[in-house]
Amino acid sequence: MHDPRIDVAETVYRFAYGIDQRDWAGYRSIFVEPPTTIDFDYSSYHGRPAAAMDVDAWVGAVTPLFSGLDATQHTMSNPVVEIDGAVARCRVYMQAAHFLWADDLVERTGDAVPEFTIGGFYDDRLVRCADDRWRIDAVRLTVWWRRGNERIMELARTRDRP
């Protein structure tokens, strides 16, 4: 018998895979379809309150940031999945490493370190859709720790790429 918790965890893992591979169509496919908005809560990362956003606007907002970085590796582990009918909740530990190599890092960020990494966990809510796939409709990141040169993130967002 197939365990649906595996499908839920795989959907959450595809969140990391889509970003790291810059597979924006694949990344988009893990979220619910419009017109539904998604609740994104990254307040523990940046201090701004949680917000409901159109998923296409979300993908459009994160694409320049991650495309401006030279490499990322989002690692997710230890999934705890609870399913209640057509709604699932999944918590995973995470570490997200971001890299930007540039000759002028010191001048532009005040630091020569080309890495910024955060650790913590994601709490995601997923719904089973008409196509029987689990899709994310709420994301909450809780950051426990940070290390490295956080200023590379803003530099990446505004970086001109060839």
Rank of each mutant, 00 (worst) to 15 (best):
H2P: 02
H2C: 02
D3R: 08
P4Y: 06
R5V: 03
R5L: 05
I6F: 14
D7R: 08
E10I: 12
E10T: 10
T11K: 11
V12Y: 14
Y13M: 13
R14Y: 06
R14K: 11
F15I: 04
F15H: 11
A16C: 09
G18L: 08
I19T: 14
Q21H: 14
Q21W: 10
Q21P: 01
R22Y: 03
R22M: 07
G26R: 07
Y27D: 12
Y27M: 15
S29V: 08
S29L: 05
S29W: 10
I30M: 06
I30P: 03
F31N: 04
P34D: 10
T36A: 12
I38R: 03
F40R: 04
F40E: 01
D41S: 03
D41Y: 06
Y45I: 00
G47F: 05
G47C: 07
G47E: 14
A51D: 06
A51N: 01
A51Q: 12
M53D: 05
M53E: 10
D54E: 13
V55E: 03
D56N: 15
A57V: 09
A57M: 07
W58R: 02
G60R: 06
V62N: 01
P64H: 14
S67H: 06
L69Y: 09
D70G: 12
A71I: 03
T72V: 12
S77V: 05
S77K: 10
S77E: 14
N78K: 03
N78G: 04
P79E: 15
V80A: 10
E82L: 05
E82T: 09
G85K: 14
G85V: 11
G85C: 07
V87P: 00
C90G: 09
R91D: 13
R91E: 15
V92R: 00
V92T: 15
Y93T: 09
Y93S: 10
Y93L: 11
M94Q: 12
Q95K: 09
A96H: 01
W101H: 12
W101E: 12
L105E: 12
V106M: 15
E107T: 11
E107H: 08
T109F: 09
T109A: 09
T109K: 07
T109C: 06
G110W: 11
D111R: 10
A112F: 03
V113F: 05
P114G: 09
P114D: 13
E115P: 00
F116T: 00
G120R: 00
F121H: 15
D123N: 08
D124W: 01
R125Y: 03
V127G: 09
V127P: 02
V127L: 11
C129T: 13
C129F: 00
C129R: 04
C129G: 05
D131L: 02
R133V: 04
R133M: 11
I136Y: 02
I136H: 02
I136E: 07
I136C: 02
D137W: 10
D137Y: 13
V139P: 01
R140C: 01
V143E: 01
E150R: 00
R151V: 06
R151Y: 01
I152K: 04
I152F: 02
I152W: 03
L155C: 05
L155Q: 03
A156V: 00
R157A: 15
T158P: 00
T158Q: 13
R159S: 05
D160W: 04
R161L: 10
R161E: 15
P162Q: 14
